[in-house]
Amino acid sequence: MTRALLRLIGARLLLSGLSLLAVSAIVFAVMEALPGDTAQRLLGRDATVQALAVLRAQLHLEQPAWARYGDWLGGVLHGDFGTSLVARRPVLPYIAGHFGYSLLLGGLALALHIPLSVSLGLFGAATRRDGPIDAMISAVALLGMSAPEFVIGIFLVSILATTLGWFPPLALIDQAHGPLEVARTLLLPVLTLNFAMTAYVLRQTRNAMFDVLRSDYVRLAVLRGLPPRHVLLRHALPNALAPAINAIALNAGWLVGGIVVVEVVFNYPGLGRLLVESISFHDVPMVLGAALVLSATYIAINLAADVALMLLTPKLLVR
């Protein structure tokens, strides 16, 4: 029974190594293609040619690109992700710290997203199809889905933070004291992300539940005299969750990118903001490290979703 599951996980782990290698090569190539380098960024426009040359030598920037990539890759294989060209310190502790913040924000966003969108979808399915409640839920959710998250973020900030003053406009979590203040700083970014994500899962759950409730097996469960609670929890819900999990996985994947934008809007010290800042400073080892961690997260989310899907779908699990 678990053989199919183990085969899936094994194959994915093998593939993910190749994916990460490809990601690092592409990111390195793109960084090389960008104009300018770290020395220029650090010293500014008025730097003398000599000063630039000295700094480039210190940062080993005069070596050819393939040699720098090879050095970096060799280091990674030994667990050394390199040294930041700007901070001149190992990138790993930096990335770990920022990743922790991103994980907190993304985790909280998902922790709200999954029960909220699934239960709204189930609620929509419980009302009359295309009735007033169903239509209203869908309309609000679609509005959230069609607006870009930086628009929603700025909109929420201007109303809830600037006008009403209920929440801080910036999510300066590293300066927050105590869990209550942390929650206050995180609320707006979490809401912004949820606005963007809810519609899709909600509609998938609602449509799946509508179909399942009209299925032969739910009809027969009722005609076999089983109580409504049992029919809903054992016969209907598990079959409506598979499409919902697909949608949640897509959203969680989107979240890896969406969080970058939201972190910049709220000046939140996560991995996304670190990535954007490091790109502007041409800090190649930092960019590579951050990109690898984001990619690995994306891969892990998809694998977790496929495992959950398989556990919920006996047809995939046992043949």
Binding site: S215, D216, Y217, L220, A221, R234, H235, N239
Partner: peptide, 14 residues
């Protein structure tokens, strides 16, 4: 009660 399509009457996740 036995319906026409007995297979479809069996909940696939159970």
């Amino acid at each position: 009660f036995v319906p026409q399509n007995g297979g479809a009457s069996l909940t696939p996740t159970m």
